[in-house]
């Protein structure tokens, strides 16, 4: 019979130094998201402010620096009137974000009101709102936008009202569906049987349920609004040509591109894309934080 091995003393190891925790664990995921969202929003606010400050300088012409290619002094180059393209781009982005902000807020409010009426109101109200949504989604955005802007005499208000009145449909559909889904949940019926009032159910159950989707939809309206503002101005139905708007900058650059002045289109275009992506980043990060299904991962 084989001898049993003598029972060994368990080896007790004491760790003097823990391995350094990885950076990702120290700065939790949630904080990374929060920092991302805050940074993205801070950059956007900085662009708005810097653009407002830079607007007078952006309109200054100086024929001594006419057609200058990008350099350290003028990172985005200068145009045929000797205007600094960096300042013009900044001013244009600022204007676009301000218009986008105003239009998106109005659009989101329309969506919230109509979506709630459709979900909580009578069948007739729901029918009317649903019909309006289908109508709006059936007509091409840009055509309607051009019509509204033109009817209002173009300019700042033409563009803003046009964007606000054409962008609410998809968010309204989201709000309506979310409110309906939440209202039919068993836990809403139970809350009512436990004595919760309609107002309390709306405030405690329905609003927290709808809010994350609404917030994300709202933030994702910005890039849409900004791109449409640029598009309609590019086509000449938006902001007046003397304003340093991105649509104007890009449409003017078309004339000079064949002469080799590539910087007139490339840098403003890239800046527009970068701004839109910043909004996307902020929206995505905020959604993950607000949404309870993912906020603890």
């Amino acid at each position: 019979m084989a001898e049993l091995a003598p029972a060994q003393e368990p080896v007790v190891q004491t760790t003097l130094f823990h391995a350094p925790r990885s950076l990702a664990r120290i700065i939790s995921n949630r904080n990374v998201l929060l920092i991302t969202a805050v940074c993205a929003l801070a950059i956007l606010v900085a662009i708005i402010v810097a653009g407002i400050v830079a607007t007078p300088a952006a309109q200054e012409t100086d024929f001594a620096r006419r057609d200058l290619a990008p350099s350290l002094a003028h990172p985005f180059g200068c145009d045929w009137l000797g205007r600094d393209m960096f300042l013009r781009t900044l001013a244009g982005l600022s204007l676009s974000i301000r218009i986008g902000l105003l239009a998106a807020v109005v659009s989101a409010l329309i969506a919230l009101v109509l979506g709630t009426i459709a979900a909580l109101g009578s069948k007739v109200a729901d029918g009317i709102v649903t019909w309006l949504i289908d109508l709006m989604m059936g007509v091409p955005h840009l055509v309607l936008l051009i019509l509204i802007s033109y009817a209002l005499g173009k300019g700042f208000w033409g563009v803003t009202v046009g964007i606000a009145l054409t962008h609410w449909a998809s968010l309204t559909r989201v709000v309506r569906a979310e409110v309906l889904q939440c209202r039919q949940s068993p836990y809403i019926a139970v809350a009512g049987k436990l004595g919760a009032s309609r107002l309390r159910i709306a405030a405690k159950h329905i609003v927290p349920f709808v809010f994350p989707q609404f917030l994300v939809g709202f933030i994702l309206l910005f890039p849409h609004a900004i791109l449409h503002e640029a598009a309609i101005t590019f086509l000449g139905f938006g902001l007046p040509p003397e304003l340093p708007a991105l649509g104007n900058i890009l449409s003017e650059s078309m004339t000079y591109r064949s002469t080799g002045m590539w910087w007139l289109a490339v840098f403003p275009g890239l800046s527009l894309i970068a701004t839109v992506l910043l909004f996307d980043l902020a929206g995505g990060a905020l959604r993950k934080i607000v949404d309870a299904r993912t906020n603890q991962e």
């Binding site: 949940s185 068993p186 809350a191 436990l194 004595g195 927290p208 349920f209």
Partner: peptide, 22 residues
């Protein structure tokens, strides 16, 4: 219809009768 109901139902699926966000 208003106030707490004197008859309370307890169901088969507790996870459906509790607000997942609360």
């Amino acid at each position: 219809k208003k106030g707490a109901c004197p008859v309370q139902l307890i169901g088969q699926h507790p996870e459906q009768t509790l607000d997942p966000l609360m």
